[in-house]
Design a protein around this nucleic acid. Structure first.
Lengths: 400, 400
DNA sequence: CCACTTTGTTTGTTCTTTTTACTAACTGAA
DNA sequence: TTCAGTTAGTAAAAAGAACAAACAAAGTGG
């Protein structure tokens, strides 16, 4: 994705109006139930400006009016909410073990979802299947009859910044794939915003963007699956995903934790992925690729060999988390990915190391919250859908 | 520093005007010699709007008109430049071994500078001395009679985001110091913008901000001195420094490179600083704190023990650089700090490891440029001055 | 010398927010 | 019940900023 404006930012009157409409919509999205007066106070705009902006957003179906609020000695305000009936956002994740699809509302509520197992195959075959599944999803009852705002795809590898190219997906065996171009012929009638992004970055974005109430200043999502990657999203106002000049930001699986350690598939030695990742655990325990790693391991958790392997991986994960803390210091860390299903034997050593060491430097009790996701299945797909919405609200298009 | 606006961003007409004035000024700053027509084309504004904005910036002394440009078949445009005669920016770095002060123009040209050696002492004594030196600097010939826009201070430790508190400076023995408050009584007549930031972050900012021509999308400055820290600045439009929720972003000296390794002063084991930093080199070679590390080592570079120590430190530095590449992927890395004076024995292993491994993952020839600073003496101080200018141009104040 | 091109300014228009005044709707006390 | 006080939202005129178009200025090139 990325709506980077390389040129220097100046603005005309149209830009200003759009900015204010975006601000109003974002405020209502993040704090459902705000009144016009609340918005005017928070945004430092006059009641008249807010009133006009709200009116046009109501007319276009982005907002709806709710109930009257309790009065505090004067005329009660009218609550404003997102109109969640009219639009739908599509998101999909192409994972190593399958496809995950979601259709969700403007607030991120999942209307329909689908999880299709799939062994790695060519981009073309994957795109065709995904196209069919998305087509089917769009015709399910709760999705049908809604206007689709666009489609976001999350992919397991670095994306070229500025152009929709998946540079590399080692666990799929893909390289330099323009996945949207492959998908488009299978969904000729789906218009709106199309975008693609790295899986962990989409997940990070969605975890921050679809949250209501107090929004953290930044959030880092760590995705531990076949490989290990991360996404950092920053800025409570307009959340931006850090991509890096080659899209390599967040490739923490290839940060070196053990100089002179095992060889990684990237050719370097001692990468984090050689210590903690689906494939390193497989390698350590001799589990074949055909078997589902998690399903194979869950019944074997009592075995000492498994426990030792997972504890070592967990310790490496803890170091990885601490290193992220000391190099980027996110407001919050969210840990997801399929490996989280392995539970305590993997996670306890990681969490313990992180908690133990994160406050050493400053010596204050203030802790950075680290949350382990309960069910990571649709997080990246939902995050990609969130990115679609954000690019419409903040992007250059005049869709609203 | 940090002019973070927590609230949601909307704007009025005044804001729009200011935005456009900022854009014009920034464009001229970054590309000296632009004409009004160039600006109008690049910024997507009309000639009339640009003309009015330029006129007011000329009247206020921020810009000056230069020579006529070569005609390309029509009326030649009038080149615009920053007016560097009127203002001065002050910057200072409080380092472990002394104070560095600069006074520079809007374009970052150093008008006067001073380097004062000083053994670590209390914040109060340091502030008093710095106040005197700054006072003297302001009365040097090239600085005198200029209007001072403000003062930026770079400090060797993490700063609380949002408030001007140095949380910790282990190598000075300071903790929770409101340094600006200590300094202010000694410079009662210096008004303008006062700010403080971490030394590596100031340096990173200055390295990007005072560059003209093509600006990298992001830049990471790695400062290798008594400790080791980094600063990441992103956004070619409005460059922002990543700080993190506790100001710990960039504390790469405490990322763990060697699990179970040596104990660090932070209490954890295997931190990067135990492998590469001024203090770890001292420890490895038994050099007392009273001696100047670099001056002591330079005559001893032929000794095998020194060579081995520096090579090992260099290898760790290379890993650190590669880890930054794979976790944040800056457009450019700049390596500075006093240790760079040790030259090839330290730097060659680092650069070699980095060049060798940075393209493994994507397999493309595209390299991220890594530049070693020739003279890092005033880089952080000058960067702090740059931050003053940026906070005036982009910040909330109405100074221009 | 003249047609043509490009720069920069002037003038009046358009667009957006602001100001001010007003209506609406509720609280609480007389 | 009434009425002063308070807060929410709207309407119309006013102000401010950018815009469009015409124009003046200053070159080029035949």
């Amino acid at each position: 994705m990325s709506h980077r404006n390389q040129q220097h930012k100046a603005g005309d009157l149209h830009f200003l109006k759009r900015l204010n409409r975006s601000a109003i919509l974002e405020m209502v999205r993040r704090t459902p139930g705000l009144t016009r007066a609340d918005i005017a106070a928070q945004a430092q705009l006059t009641k008249a400006t807010v009133g006009a902006g709200v009116q046009s957003l109501l007319n276009q179906g982005w907002l709806r009016e709710g109930e009257l609020q309790k009065s505090s000695g004067g005329r009660p305000g009218r609550a404003l909410h997102l109109n969640e009936e009219q639009h739908v956002l599509l998101g999909a994740e192409v994972g190593v073990h399958g496809l995950r699809l979601v259709a969700c509302t403007l607030a991120g509520q999942v209307l329909a979802s689908h999880h299709e197992h799939l062994v790695p195959t060519t981009p073309e075959v994957t795109a065709e299947l995904l196209g069919k599944l998305l087509h089917a999803l769009m015709h399910e009852a709760p999705v049908k009859n809604r206007h689709c705002l666009g489609l976001g795809i999350a992919l397991p590898g670095p994306i070229s910044p500025g152009q929709p190219v998946l540079r590399l997906a080692p666990n799929l065996g893909w390289r330099d794939i323009r996945f949207l171009d492959l998908l488009r012929p299978h969904l000729p009638r789906l218009d709106g915003t199309w975008l693609m992004d790295n899986e962990a970055k989409s997940a990070a974005f969605g975890e921050l963007y679809f949250r209501t109430g107090t929004i953290p200043e930044s959030l880092m999502y760590v995705s531990a699956g076949t490989g290990i990657g991360s996404g950092m999203v920053e800025g409570s106002h307009l959340p931006l995903v850090a991509r890096g000049i080659q899209g390599l930001a967040g490739e923490i699986g290839h940060t070196v934790l053990q100089p002179g350690g095992l060889y990684c598939h990237c050719g370097n030695r001692g990468c984090a992925e050689t210590l903690v990742s689906g494939w390193s655990i497989r390698a350590a325990l001799g589990i074949a690729e055909e078997e589902d790693l998690i399903e194979t391991l869950l019944p074997r958790m009592h075995e000492p060999e498994v426990q030792v392997t997972l504890r070592r991986a967990g310790e490496a994960l803890g170091i990885l988390l601490l290193n992220l803390h000391h190099s980027q210091n996110p407001s919050e860390i969210v840990l997801g990915g399929s490996l989280t299903r392995l539970g305590a034997p993997l996670l306890d050593p990681a969490l313990h190391y992180f908690q133990e060491n994160q406050t050493r430097l400053l010596g204050t009790p203030q802790q950075v919250p680290l949350r382990v996701v309960e069910d990571a299945t649709f997080i990246a797909a939902r995050g990609a859908a969130a990115q679609v919405l954000a690019s419409i609200i903040h992007g250059p298009s005049d869709l609203f």
